[in-house]
């Protein structure tokens, strides 16, 4: 699953530690999500979406959907 977490964080000029504090998770978790080594739980994904004020699908893109959307 791809995500725009790093871009959204950079837009707000937050460090990974800042984002981790806001999400009440560890910095390692933020890093693992950003580098797409770890897919967050639904509850954490909702929390991220709420924090950035948008729907989940604007932040996380399922690889299957990406493939089927291509011509």
């Amino acid at each position: 699953m791809k995500n725009r977490l790093r871009v959204l964080r950079a837009e707000r000029d937050w460090t990974q530690a800042d984002l981790a504090e806001r999400l009440e998770v560890s910095r390692q978790t933020v890093n693992a999500v950003e580098t797409e080594k770890y897919e967050p739980s639904l509850s954490l994904a909702f929390k991220i979406a709420r924090l950035f004020g948008g729907p989940i699908e604007d932040i996380f893109q399922d690889n299957e959907n990406n493939r089927s959307a291509r011509p």
Binding site: E24, V25, S26, T29, Y38, P40
Partner: peptide, 8 residues
């Protein structure tokens, strides 16, 4: 008490 990644 750990976050979800650490628990995993």
């Amino acid at each position: 008490g750990l976050d979800e990644l650490h628990r995993r």
